[in-house]
Amino acid sequence: MDADAEYVLQHVSRLARLQLSDEERQKFAKQIRDVLDLFNKVASANVEGEPAYHCIEAENGLRPDKPVKFDWDPLANAKHVEGKYIKSPKIV
């Protein structure tokens, strides 16, 4: 499973938008290998049937589609605000 651990560290961390320091990379290598060993017990288990995305049967909890007023400011914690907009770094 060594290849997988290496792949996870190098490739997946980039996809996950995390930049690991050399120190983190070194420390995580064995830890991730150990956890993957644990996860491989699931991968190698013989199990059929339906997946349980939820643990309890419940009806769809959508609320009525009508406008509701916020009694709080959704931008209260935004730092880079211009008027009623949030300023972001360039997208393209």
Binding site: V42, A43, E50, P51, A52
Partner: peptide, 11 residues
């Protein structure tokens, strides 16, 4: 991994 885990969860 993920789907298999959900099946085990059902079990």
């Amino acid at each position: 991994y993920y789907l298999k885990a959900l099946k085990i969860r059902k079990r």
